[in-house]
Amino acid sequence: MTSNATHQTDVAIIGAGPVGLFAVFECGMLKMKAHVLDALDMAGGQCSALYPEKPIYDIPGHPRIDAAELVRQLEAQAAPFKPVYHLGHAVTRVESHGDRFLVGNANGVTVDARAVIVAAGVGAFGPNRPPLEGIEAYEGKSVHYLVKRREDFRGKRIVIAGGGDSALDWVLSLADLAAHVYVIHRRPKFRAAPESVARMEALVKTGKVEMVVPYQLADLEGSNGQISAVIVSTLDGQTRSLPADALLPFFGLSMNLGPIAQWGLNLEHNHILVDPATCATSRAGIFAIGDIAHYPGKLKLILSGFAEAASAAHAIYPLVHPGEVLHFEYSTTSGVPAA
């Protein structure tokens, strides 16, 4: 991590999440050096900040891998190319400088690069809070919007609210640790992957998980930051009190592009529009990959972001090495430099 200085490199990568880290590797394989900037003080993006112990099932070659371990593996994969990380301070400006860019962060660091890759995930993010009076008093103590250590929930009565992948992923992950898991959702149909729904329904049959449907959060009971019960209600006013030690509401993330919105890029619903073939944005020399990038048929999967990183790196190569013919080689042929 560096401070007040100007650095020259080939590619500035904004975002140190999994896709940004893989972009370091892809650029490195094409003999392009990279500096990586991120507002968080650690690499890994949401995987590190929100759910380091969350299991991920759709990474090729890994039937299951925890988010933190995936980040560690990606950092090791990028390491031979000696990336420079500028972490803990948000990028505040991206300015054209001839045919290059000056990328600056809030700590006074400026990176002078030929091309920019925006791998900023969902931008600045935070949880969507349920509208429960007084919930702030319990946050961080018995109301949690993320799980950093599964072990913290061993033997506890847990209420998980939400119907998407995050909610069901944690139902499946915590069921074997918790004393009991309640799943609160306002309707019987879930938005999560069908396989996750099927696995949850199997746990319901064993009694480890109880579905409380169709209900929604209504109130909390407790004192000194510790909940004792979660009150839920139906749309017609029927209520139920669930004895609980912890509430995990998963209602998605609020998304804020922040300064990205001022960089002259074509945007659509807080996403950056790109050419799917190259991940080029509307501003020459700037590319976007991962969840922040959008094009017809886009799938918001980490593996899609990995492929986009490769496409962007290949599109950037002639900018960094003008006039040089790129002879494409598989990594099994070219190998990877030793760290």
Rank of each mutant, 00 (worst) to 15 (best):
K205S: 13
K205R: 12
E221V: 08
A202E: 15
I231H: 09
A202Q: 12
T206I: 04
A218Q: 09
G225I: 08
M200W: 05
D219Q: 12
V212R: 08
D219K: 11
L203K: 04
Q226R: 14
N224H: 15
A229R: 10
A229I: 10
I227K: 05
P214S: 08
I231R: 11
T206P: 01
S223L: 12
G225E: 10
E201L: 11
K205D: 12
I227L: 15
P214H: 00
Q216P: 04
A229E: 10
D219A: 15
S228W: 06
Y215K: 06
A218R: 14
E210S: 10
G222V: 11
M200C: 03
E221C: 03
V213W: 01
S223H: 13
V209G: 06
L203H: 05
S228Q: 14
N224Q: 14
Y215T: 01
G225D: 09
K208V: 03
N224T: 12
S228V: 02
V213K: 00
L217R: 08
E210V: 02
V209L: 02
D219P: 00
A202I: 07
S223E: 15
V204W: 02
V230D: 01
A202F: 06
N224W: 07
A229K: 11
E221K: 15
Q216W: 04
E201S: 07
V204R: 07
V230Q: 05
Q226V: 11
N224G: 14
K205P: 05
Q216T: 12
P214W: 03
V209W: 01
S228H: 13
S223D: 13
V212F: 06
V213H: 01
K205E: 15
N224V: 12
I231Y: 08
A229G: 11
S223Y: 11
D219R: 12
K205T: 10
G207Y: 07
E221P: 04
L217M: 04
P214A: 04
Q226F: 13
E210W: 00
E210C: 02
K208T: 04
S223A: 15
T206C: 04
S228L: 05
Q216K: 14
Q226E: 11
K205W: 12
G225S: 09
G225N: 09
A202K: 14
A229L: 00
